[in-house]
Design a protein around this nucleic acid. Structure first.
Lengths: 345, 345
DNA sequence: CTGAAAGCGCTTACAG
DNA sequence: CTGAAAGCGCTTACAG
């Protein structure tokens, strides 16, 4: 077979071995650093050969051979929803120093894309995956697990405890928001939410309802929690009579939608409507927004998830069935962030 | 050699070939779809074997063998700066249907991380890279190119036209903002900027200065364009006497910093200070923010960059020297988005 | 349309 | 501490 590829050949481990006057095996051992010892003299020879040849080991070959890709997949619903970049930053923070590369997958609303992402992660043989997309079905997570991938579910939960999970206490968060509103003297409040089949929303609602019970509480739903949809839903809510004087939004984007709709209708916040959101995306800190909210600690959730994943991978390198250790559940505490939109200041 | 890895073996192309009663080569041809023809009968046999065995081709092996990883690297400065997710979304939009996987790299401020990202992209043998980090040095881009990777620089420029570039016309954008401010009757305005060694900032400034000339114009610098630093710098600016009544910020985060500082000092926007930003991050649409700004079209920039990259890769599969076609330059037009902060409404 | 065989660039027991 | 050789799971000319 001659000249299969008419391209500039890259330098390989063989070139390095030749120049250093040692075997490929020895170069490989030098590269892996930890596991094997290499004498000082050969180490030096190898190092200078690598430098001279400007050699970069081929990660595909390494992965194929060692059955370890040093890649981890992160799947989020949408990268433009500011909650997710924050979580991804948390993941990166810990994954990065550990030498892993991040494959980003977006599941969108779309179930085709969801299937694509799952397939991609499996085919690329990621060492682990962090699934942080609220819209991803449990079956998709199951597929990853079946394929032998270590997976951690972050900022959401599965119906059955299939894998490690890291979440905040959403019920508590909902309760905190509701109690704060009640503390302002509001006898009635409305919960503005995305679809209630998203567990986090449902739990926040439960927390809310533990304070505003029965007839006193009401829910108003948006189809999704995109700003446009949220605004649309908020218009509906604000035209309902009697108009609520206090609203707890299931996340900050929904809260911003409410702000937008209120503004258009000439209603002021907090004077006409007191508002609390959920997540604490950075936008809320801007003076003109000044959103009181519950911090869902996206960054920490990401970091903790990455830490748990790294531990799993360490325990089961290559393909595992997640078998040894039973699924763990890490619960972080939410935190009320008081700013202007609730009427405190 | 017996039992090298005590792990559940995954199903391989050999298993599929065996079950389907054909050779690995034929299965491979079926998998590649486009290039080869496979008879209807064998196609069916292969398909059912794949389904029965739940087979997923190993992308590492495919990449090693074909010298095509179907991965593209995207490097941004910071994923939590809302400008970048928007650009990444644009990239994804076109990369995704084309079957590429996105490797995300963050260069941060840190030049160690920058080197890591470059190394990672090279070792993983990405088919191409999109560099959108304003803080990444030209030398790093050069390294990628030297390693035979197709690279597109997005939303920034290199000193020398080394690779394809997609940018907006920053000078024009700066001019549009300045002219709008001048149209409001402001005889003097200040340019609030990040470091002027970032070309985009410098060009925006040039556009600004083409309207507010010489003594009339002034610059005020922030160390970075993080919100906290921006706010800090804005305090300085607002305490300068005479206090400017119009500010053009080099990007929206800087503008938000100015809003924050102004609010703290009891200054109103636009009554006391008219403000225009740059980028049009979605936050500006929120009523309480209502930021007049210049749309830098992050999403389109990302999409166009991805398109150019796909074309390069198609032309030079595997390792190329980006040689054949000279570097291209794609310039998009910025667009003024008028909202409340400039005093228009 | 299909298959045999070499090769992609590494790693890893095993033997020394 | 070092090396020979097999193997990781694919793809691709080449021949039929």
């Amino acid at each position: 077979m001659v000249n299969r590829f008419p391209v500039t050949p890259r330098t390989t481990i063989t070139d390095v071995a030749l120049l250093a006057g040692v075997s490929k095996a020895t170069v490989s051992k030098y590269l892996s650093a930890t596991d094997y010892y290499v004498s000082e003299k050969t180490r030096e020879k190898i190092e200078s050969a690598i430098k001279e040849l400007n050699y970069y080991p081929n990660a595909l070959a390494q992965g194929l051979s060692s059955r370890r890709s040093y890649a981890i997949g992160v799947v989020v619903a949408s990268i433009t929803n500011p909650f997710y970049p924050e979580l991804v930053a948390g993941v990166e923070e810990v994954i990065d120093p550990a030498g892993y590369t991040l494959l980003l997958g977006t599941s969108a609303e779309n179930s085709d894309k969801e299937a694509d992402v799952v397939r991609t992660m499996i085919q690329r043989r990621v060492d682990g995956a962090i699934v942080a997309s609220a819209t991803m079905r449990d079956g998709s997570v199951q597929k990853l697990v079946n394929a032998g991938i270590n997976v951690i579910v972050a900022s959401r939960e599965l119906a059955r405890p299939l894998v490690d999970t890291v979440v905040i206490d959403n019920r508590l968060g909902g309760r905190m928001a509701a109690e704060h509103l009640r503390g302002h003297g509001f006898g009635r409040a409305v919960f503005l939410s995305g679809p209630l089949d998203v567990l986090a929303f449902r739990q926040r609602f439960e927390g809310f309802r533990s304070v505003y019970r029965e007839a006193d509480s009401a829910v108003h739903l948006a189809r999704t929690s995109e700003l446009a949809e949220a605004t649309e839903a908020a218009f509906g809510l604000l035209r309902d009579l009697p108009r609520p004087s206090a609203v707890f939004a299931a996340n900050d984007t929904l809260a911003l939608g409410l702000m937008t709709a209120a503004h258009t209708l000439g209603l002021r916040i907090p004077e006409d409507i007191a508002l609390i959101g959920f997540d604490d995306i950075w936008v809320g800190r801007i003076p003109g927004v000044s959103l009181t909210t519950v911090d869902s600690r996206a960054r920490q959730v990401g970091a903790v998830a990455a830490g748990m994943l790294a531990e799993r991978i360490g325990r089961h390198p290559g393909e595992s069935r997640n078998a040894r250790k039973p699924p763990e559940r890490h619960v972080l505490a939410p935190q009320l962030i008081v700013r202007g939109s609730c009427g405190c200041s």
